[in-house]
Nucleic acid binder design. Sequence first.
DNA 1: TCGATTCTGTAGTGATCGCTAAAGAAAGGG
DNA 2: CCCTTTCTTTAGCGATCACTACAGAATCGA
Lengths: 203, 203
Amino acid sequence: MGRTRSFDRDAALERALEEFWRHGYEATSIAGLTAAMGINPPSLYAAFGDKRRLFAEAVERYQETHGAFSTRALTEEATARDAVERLLREAADVYTSTTHPPGCMIISAGVNTTDPGVIAELRGHREGAKRVIRERIEHDVRSARLPGDTDTAGLATYYAAVIQGMSTQARDGASRTDLERVAALAMRAWPAELLDGAPGRTA
Amino acid sequence: MGRTRSFDRDAALERALEEFWRHGYEATSIAGLTAAMGINPPSLYAAFGDKRRLFAEAVERYQETHGAFSTRALTEEATARDAVERLLREAADVYTSTTHPPGCMIISAGVNTTDPGVIAELRGHREGAKRVIRERIEHDVRSARLPGDTDTAGLATYYAAVIQGMSTQARDGASRTDLERVAALAMRAWPAELLDGAPGRTA
DNA sequence: TCGATTCTGTAGTGATCGCTAAAGAAAGGG
DNA sequence: CCCTTTCTTTAGCGATCACTACAGAATCGA
């Protein structure tokens, strides 16, 4: 059924992802993309549609690979505190890894972008992540591990802000240990836990 | 001495500042600037040099006006704790004010920008602010208000990250009270203070 | 009033933006 | 083999980028 594609679509998508990660949506040009992907513009458009759809695929791939640690941390730990602590620690690790651009693509790639669809797409992912944090904390409130008057939305906003600050610090050159110290300090805001089987103490 | 300028240079600079604040350096076009400033390109170039120098003047103006609360908070309070607490509280206020774009121009305007000079200029301001925070904390360590083993650099990085996260949250639509809650939670990381005249306790 | 000077608007510079028409190259089916 | 299909390359589309040549308009000193 015709000539076969001469490049690895998945590998090219990963290169495009890293371009968008490093330079953001708008500052990444088709010329920069094709150079990084090792192909010519018509091959890019035939395989991925256009710049906007290529970006959407790159974001999807990011969530399934580099950004998947977030969902794992929040679902695989026994307590909300362990989940958030692991989330911050793994963010410190991923954001400063030298095998890919620094920081978080979901946080930085849409900054200073004109396209409203791109802004909404990334903001939706950020709001979704914040909601997952809040729901994980709410679960521990319902199971009486955390006080009933815990400000779950406030804590979720706080940890979302800390993670976004860590991403910015990483892009400014902060090291892994720098961010691990930020993560450790951020955990001091965690509310006093209620012990299992020890009823009554609310503060 | 020739024809007099027909527009208010200071007012035009403020409009340019807000354009750069909202859209960042690279995504702000000369066409957008001239439209916001109410002048034509030749007037802009005659009065401000070029886009790069106009941006530098806008950053300088920002530091002297919208961003001046930062230095004031860190120099006018009696203790480092009060200084940082005021810094966070005023940031929550300024970043969500509706009289100008949300967030902090120093933090966001250089994201996803290619020009290395712009990146270095803004990063320099961020590093400078972080250094001022650290020096304010070190002052309280020297005066024995804070423990001698306080990780001043770690605390400075942490509060810098929190402020950067607050800026991102503001640009995502967070309210003033949202950011005030973030500020309050962030203060839980503050080390235990040593009381004046009560010697010895180091933790 | 007049020349000198400086600002202003019009209009356009070359370069780059995202994107694509056209034609040659490589694969499958007959 | 040849025809069809799909990929590839070259080349260039209109639009926008930062920036400016040019000439008219406005203000100065004389």
